[in-house]
C-alpha cells in the first residue's frame, strides 16, 4: 500500500510518499510562490518518480496547506493543522504543543493524550510572527535568510523591536541602524520579537512539554533558541521541518484508506487552482 501527502504552502510545496509501514519512500520540496503555482503538481509528479513509482500505484492522496482546496489529483483535503499534528506525532510521539511557523501564518497546536488535536490557534492575517516578517526585514538589512542564525549567534544582547507591524518594524530597524546598533543584536531582536509574538499566541493553549517547532523558519537556530527561551522548556525540531505537514497528510491517507474512505474517481494530474 502506498500513500501520498501533498502540502501546498504559500511559498513551498512539499510532497511525501509512505508505504504501508509508514516508511518514507520519497520526499520533495519545491517552490509555490506566485509565479510557481502551476508547478505544484510537478512536485507531486517528481516525488512519485523519485520513489520509482507510478502515479496510479498510490492508494490514497491527501492534499493539505493553503492550496489544498482544488487539487484535481487528491482524494481528500485536510487542513495543515490536523496534518502537522499527525506528522509530528510520528516523529516525536510525546508531543503536546506544536509551534508551526509558516511563510504566511503561524499556528499553535495542542495535542491530547491520544495525539490528536485538542485545540489550536492561528495568527491573524498579518506577516508578524511568520517567515514573511523575517524575509522582509532580512532584505532591509541586506542579509541572506540562511545567514540569520549565524549572525544572531554573535550577539551579546538584543535590540528591542517593539513594532510587530512589518512596515513599522522596517522603519524601526532602519532607525536603530542609524543610531549605531549592531546588526547581530538587531537580528537577535527580530528573533526575540517573533518568538515573543508566536509564543504569546501559543500560551493561550497552555504550554506543556514536549514542545516541537516546525515549518521552514524552524531551520533558523537563532529563532528556535529565542522560542525555547520564551517557552522556558527545551524545544524539539524535526530533522526536516518543511515536510511534517506532507508527512502527516500521507499518514492520514493511510487511515482513510483503511476506513475505506471514498476516493476521487476522476484523479487528474493537472494544475492546482488556488482560491483567491
Amino acid at each position: 500500500m502506498l500513500f501520498a501527502g501533498l502540502d501546498i504552502g504559500s511559498t513551498m510545496t512539499k510532497a511525501v510518499i509512505v508505504d504501508g509501514n509508514e516508511k518514507i519512500l520519497a520526499a520533495l520540496v519545491g517552490p509555490t510562490g506566485a509565479e510557481h503555482r502551476h508547478l505544484a503538481f510537478q512536485v507531486m509528479d517528481e516525488t512519485v518518480r523519485k520513489a520509482g513509482l507510478s502515479f496510479e500505484a498510490l492508494d490514497f492522496i491527501v492534499a493539505t496547506g493553503y492550496g489544498r482546496i482544488n487539487v484535481p489529483f487528491a482524494d481528500k483535503q485536510v487542513t495543515e493543522i490536523t496534518c502537522h499534528a499527525r506528522g509530528i506525532r510520528a516523529i516525536f510521539p510525546g508531543t503536546r504543543i506544536i509551534i508551526d511557523i509558516g511563510g504566511q501564518d503561524s499556528k499553535g497546536i495542542k495535542l491530547n493524550d491520544a495525539g490528536t488535536v485538542a485545540n489550536f490557534v492561528m495568527n491573524d492575517k498579518c506577516a508578524a510572527g511568520t517567515g514573511r516578517f523575517l524575509e522582509v526585514i532580512s532584505e532591509t538589512l541586506g542579509i541572506r535568510l540562511s545567514d540569520l542564525a549565524l549572525i544572531s549567534a554573535e550577539a551579546e544582547g538584543f535590540v528591542k523591536i517593539s513594532n510587530m507591524c512589518t512596515v513599522f518594524a522596517e522603519h524601526e530597524v532602519t532607525s536603530r541602524l542609524a543610531e549605531g546598533a549592531r546588526i547581530a543584536e538587531i537580528v537577535a531582536g527580530l528573533h526575540e520579537a517573533i518568538a515573543g509574538r508566536v509564543v504569546n499566541m501559543v500560551r493561550h493553549l497552555g504550554i506543556e512539554k514536549d514542545v516541537v517547532v516546525t515549518g521552514g523558519p524552524a531551520k533558523n537556530a537563532g529563532l528556535v533558541k529565542a522560542i525555547a527561551d520564551k517557552v522556558g522548556l527545551p524545544v524539539w525540531v524535526p530533522p526536516e521541518p518543511f515536510i511534517t505537514g506532507a508527512l502527516g497528510a500521507a499518514l492520514l491517507g493511510k487511515g482513510f484508506a483503511k476506513r475505506n474512505a471514498t476516493r476521487n474517481q476522476t484523479r487528474r494530474m493537472e494544475s492546482v487552482t488556488f482560491f483567491a
Binding site: 487542513t79 495543515e80 493543522i81 490536523t82 488535536v117
Partner: peptide
Amino acid sequence: IGQLRTRIQAFLEM
C-alpha cells in the same frame, strides 16, 4: 474569508 476556511475546517476536523 478564504483565510478563515482553514480555521473552520480544522475546528470541524477537531
